[in-house]
Design a protein around this nucleic acid. Sequence first.
DNA 1: ACTTACCGTAAGCCATGACTTACGGAAACG
DNA 2: CGTTTCCGTAAGTCATGGCTTACGGTAAGT
Lengths: 106, 106
Amino acid sequence: MTYGNALRCLSDPTRRQVFERLRHGPLPVGAIAAGLPVSRPAVSQHLKSLKDAGLVTDRAEGTRRVYAIDPNGIGELRRWLDQFWDEALESFSREVRRTSPHRSRP
Amino acid sequence: MTYGNALRCLSDPTRRQVFERLRHGPLPVGAIAAGLPVSRPAVSQHLKSLKDAGLVTDRAEGTRRVYAIDPNGIGELRRWLDQFWDEALESFSREVRRTSPHRSRP
DNA sequence: ACTTACCGTAAGCCATGACTTACGGAAACG
DNA sequence: CGTTTCCGTAAGTCATGGCTTACGGTAAGT
């Protein structure tokens, strides 16, 4: 249930902002924190959470630490959501069939 | 940004349990609360949040209130995630190309 | 009409977690 | 080596929100 961690991470607006800044490519912590309404240590803490959830990866590059999006996290989240999506649609159509019975040819 | 509400809803484990109980079809509140480790009013509050996020719908059926999954909520969430998924994959492959340069034909 | 079943809302309690400031450590640069 | 830059961690504060109990309201049954 690692998708639970992913959901918990992405539920926080600030953490989503951190995450979305990596969409167009990897970035060091300072560049991520710049412009955000929170301090840099806060961003570091968010990045730790995102990393634990499998949503980002980090690599050392000199004195800076470059973060990038990890496809594994969103992949797992996507699979969980898709499985859900299918069953929900089926249940929904079943419900429609039940509510408005045999409107087969007006 | 109604997907933000959806994410916030699904981030809570109990609320996910409530939500997942509706996967196989609509259920009244009592049936949902039965077996859950929280009280029935708590389930009602969770259902209110899920409804506000567009994740469930409710209809009155006599004295009971039947809840069902609303495809709109997960749909929006899925679209947001997919858009994200595409850009992330592209950025990822771009990164792989950059890190391990022209391994074209071993 | 009285009772029972089923549910939503209000008020209050309490843990979780998001943020801050302060500190320490590792790599580049002179 | 000292300094500067860039970053992670620790400790502490404070708001958010999830849960409970108590209450009120509507619909069905007798």
